[in-house]
C-alpha cells in the first residue's frame, strides 16, 4: 500500500495499463510535452514516446473523433479532455458515434475508448469552466459514466475503464487531484457498476460522489458529534448505477439525502431519488432531499460561488430535515474563502 495523490494514482493506472497492452495510447491537449494541464500524464511522454502519448491541436471534435476511429480499428485510446466543459464541442462525436457504433454495427465494432478529464468547479473559473456534466452523459445509452472520489478508486476504476470494450466517460474531480490516500500496489482493479459504502451509519443515508463525497463525509463527521449516525454511499459509477447497495442502505436507515455538484433540476440525483422511491417505497420515513448547485450559471465571484455550491452546513440541514430534527444552525452563509 502506498500513499499517493489522486493525480498520481491516475498516472499509475495509465502507465501500468500501457505497459501491459501496446494497443493503449493517450491523446489530448498538452498531455505530452507539457506533461498534462493538471500533470496527470507527468513523465508519460518520456516513458512511452510520441507515438503513444500524442499532443493534439485545440480541437476536441477532431481528436475525440480520431479516438473513436482508432477504437474501431482495434486500438484502445485514452482521450484526455482538458476539462469536461470542453467536451461540449465534441458531444456529437460522443453521443452520435461513440455511444452508438457497437449497436449500429450489430456488435461488429467494439468501442474501447476512455474519455477522461476533470469535471466540476475548481474555484473562480466562471460559468463556462465549472460545469458538472455527468447528468447529460448518463442519459445517453451506450455510455458508461465513472466518477471516482478517492485515489484508490481513481486507479482501480481507470484500469477497468481502459479494459472495458464500451466507451467510458471518466470524470475526475478537478479539486481532488491533490488529495492523498492509500492506494493498493500493483494490479488492483475496482469493478465498474459497484458502489462503495464510504462510512457506515444507521440514521440516514447520504448518496454522493466525486468532490461532493468528501464534503458529505465532513458533514457526517460533524453530525456524529451530535449523535447522528450517517451512512455515506459512493456510487463511484453513475452509469450503470449500483442501485442495490443504495437500497440496502436506505432500507436500514429509512432516510436518504443525495448530494451532488450539478444543478438541481433534472440531475443525477433525480434518477437516484426516482429509483429509491420506487424500490424502497415502504421503507422511507421521510421525503428524500437533494442538495445541489443552485439554478444559475456558476458565478465568477468567490462569495457567490461558495453560496451556490453544496457545503457542510447545507448537507447537515438537509439531514436534519429528513430526520425531522430542529435545525441547530442557520443554513450555509456566503463565505469568501474558496479552496
Amino acid at each position: 500500500m502506498a500513499r499517493l495523490s489522486y493525480r498520481e494514482a491516475l498516472n499509475q493506472a495509465m502507465c501500468e495499463e500501457m505497459e501491459r497492452d501496446d494497443s493503449i495510447f493517450l491523446m489530448g491537449e498538452e498531455v505530452g510535452h507539457y506533461q498534462g494541464a493538471y500533470k496527470v500524464s507527468q513523465g508519460m511522454l518520456q516513458k512511452f514516446g510520441e507515438k503513444r502519448v500524442i499532443d493534439t491541436p485545440i480541437a476536441e471534435c477532431g481528436f475525440v473523433g480520431v479516438g473513436i476511429g482508432a477504437a474501431m480499428t482495434g486500438l484502445r485510446p485514452i482521450i484526455e479532455l482538458m476539462t469536461w466543459n470542453f467536451s461540449l464541442v465534441a458531444i456529437d462525436q460522443i453521443v452520435n458515434n461513440a455511444a452508438k457504433i457497437r449497436l449500429m454495427s450489430g456488435g461488429q465494432f467494439k468501442m474501447p475508448v476512455v474519455f477522461r478529464g476533470p469535471g466540476g468547479a475548481a474555484g473562480q473559473l466562471g460559468a463556462q469552466h465549472s460545469q458538472a456534466l455527468e447528468y447529460m452523459y448518463a442519459n445517453v445509452p451506450g455510455l458508461k459514466v465513472v466518477m471516482p472520489s478517492t485515489p484508490a478508486d481513481a486507479k482501480g476504476l481507470l484500469k477497468m475503464a481502459i479494459r472495458d470494450d464500451d466507451p467510458v466517460i471518466f470524470i475526475e474531480g478537478e479539486r481532488l487531484y491533490g488529495v492523498q490516500g492509500e492506494v493498493p500496489d500493483g494490479d488492483v482493479v475496482v469493478p465498474l457498476g459497484k458502489a462503495d459504502v464510504k462510512r457506515e451509519g444507521t440514521d440516514c443515508t447520504i448518496v454522493s460522489w466525486s468532490k461532493m463525497l468528501t464534503v458529505a463525509l465532513e458533514a457526517a463527521e460533524v453530525l456524529a458529534k451530535e449523535n447522528i449516525s450517517v451512512e455515506v454511499v459512493d456510487p463511484r459509477t453513475i452509469k450503470p448505477l449500483d442501485g442495490e447497495t443504495i437500497y440496502q442502505s436506505v432500507r436500514k436507515t429509512n432516510r436518504c439525502v443525495v448530494v451532488e455538484e450539478g444543478h438541481g433540476f433534472s440531475n443525477v440525483g433525480a434518477e437516484i431519488v426516482a429509483r429509491v422511491q420506487r424500490n424502497c417505497f415502504d421503507d422511507l420515513d421521510a421525503p428524500i432531499e437533494r442538495v445541489h448547485r443552485m439554478e444559475i450559471p456558476m458565478p465568477y465571484a468567490a462569495n457567490l460561488e461558495a453560496m451556490i455550491t453544496p457545503d457542510v452546513p447545507r448537507i447537515i440541514a438537509a439531514v436534519k430535515r429528513v430526520m425531522y430534527l430542529p435545525e441547530s444552525k442557520p443554513e450555509s452563509k456566503p463565505q469568501s474563502k474558496v479552496e
Binding site: 447528468y135 448518463a138 442519459n139 445509452p141 452509469k239 448505477l241 433540476f265 433534472s266 440531475n267 443525477v268 440525483g269 433525480a270 434518477e271 437516484i272 431519488v273 426516482a274 429509491v276 422511491q277 420506487r278 421525503p287 428524500i288 432531499e289 437533494r290
Partner: peptide, 14 residues
C-alpha cells in the same frame, strides 16, 4: 435513466 421522468419522480417524491 436520467430521463426527464427522473426529475418528475424526484420532485414529487420530495
Amino acid at each position: 435513466t436520467c430521463g426527464y421522468g427522473a426529475e418528475l419522480a424526484a420532485m414529487i417524491a420530495e
